[in-house]
Design a protein around this nucleic acid. Structure first.
Lengths: 216, 216
DNA sequence: TCGGTTTTGGAGTTGTTAGTCCAATCTACA
DNA sequence: TGTAGATTGGACTAACAACTCCAAAACCGA
């Protein structure tokens, strides 16, 4: 999933340069947004010349597209160990802790690298919504497979819909990160995810027809 | 809450012009984002000259600040009838339907006028985070007071935290709107809010110590 | 009516930034 | 080793966009 469209031949050297540009761009875009990042800053940060940048990316939009792909990989990568095992409450709680810790580590700044990007460019570069959606869908897929497994094993009530729960959980993460970014405090993120996980937990361990145990 | 800082004297005429500028700016910013909206477009849409715009707003950032205030009022206004009565499940479900209908009516475009704005400018204009937060806090306050009322009346379990639930519900709305914007489909918004409301409902109607009824 | 203040017109300025161009230099591979 | 193609340097351009400026006009209270 490295090269996007049919790139011309790229020598290892060229590929490294390209990667350097994307990395620099991703970092800057996360810090200041797309509009707040100039190609000159990217060039400086990556240590490349103007002709290099435009040699590898026809225009800024295509660079942004590469950044989307890069951030998607980064997100999935950073959560891989968790996303592969979100099929029980304990794993989900640990995953939640990891997200909170990442956010806190960033000083609650920047929000979700994919979410912030999405808000900013969804209407400006409509073509890129496909790429953004691909990113979210990959992420959601990781969550969903765990919930589906729980459902299949009967650990989730029959009438629970793991797919919808996965979407809702991802939404809680996104909304939580947004509020956390604005407030510079991880509480909103914690409250949002915790509520959703408590809900999911309430759908497990069925005790009697129509009643379930809830709580911590 | 109309004028922000200590504005100089504004005649009715001047105030109307100012309002026209803010309205035009709010609309454009919602459609294309802050960076995607030029002062010239605002001028044209509002039918004012350059000197007028800069007569009422020292710079673009202060215009954006006025837009934040305007959108906050618009959001609260559009949901006023609901926000004042979110103290039972039926009201909350109706409120949910309203949000979904608003989103669908906009073709799922633009997302939340406040949320999109926040993502875009939180790091670019850090000074404005205060204003954004004020908006979210007002919104959250409307949700919270309903949940607090339910809690006080004993319709929510004692160990439920209405304040955290309010934050989580707002986060679900924000995250849901983001995914809905990207996917151009209201399902994510529906799934996110429904899950959170189902959870809240599961915290009502306590049946026995430690067990509650859940579901639809 | 008068004087001060607010409001408006619109040309102009200044800085920025995405994107171009062409020649020079490397690199892979036959 | 030769050469076509890939990579790089860096000056340049053309457009754009935020913001300024100086009067002129409208307004308002006395």
């Amino acid at each position: 999933m490295k090269t996007y469209s049919a790139e011309r031949k790229l020598t290892p050297k060229g590929l490294a340069t390209r990667e350097r540009i994307v990395e620099a761009a991703a970092q800057l875009v996360h810090e200041r947004g797309v509009a707040g990042t100039t190609t000159e800053e990217v060039r400086y940060a990556a240590g490349v010349s103007s002709s290099q940048l435009y040699h590898y990316f026809k225009d800024k939009m295509l660079l942004v597209r590469a950044v989307i792909e890069y951030q998607t990989d980064a997100i999935i990568g950073a959560q891989a160990e968790f996303l592969d095992n979100l099929d029980n409450m304990e794993s989900m709680r640990r995953w939640r802790d990891r997200l909170v810790r990442i956010s806190r580590g960033a000083g609650c700044a920047g929000g979700c690298p994919l979410g912030s990007l999405s808000s900013e460019i969804a209407e400006v570069f409509p073509e890129l919504r496909i790429d953004l959606n691909r990113g979210f869908t990959r992420w959601e897929g990781g969550i969903r497979s765990g919930l589906r497994a729980m459902h299949a094993r009967g650990e989730l009530r029959k009438d629970a819909d793991p797919d919808r729960l996965a979407t809702a959980l991802l939404a809680a993460v996104q909304g939580g990160l947004l509020l956390t970014q604005i407030r510079r405090n991880t509480k909103p993120l914690e409250s949002a995810i915790d509520a959703m996980l408590d809900y999911i937990e309430s759908l497990t361990r069925v005790r009697a027809k129509g009643t379930v145990r809830v709580g911590h």
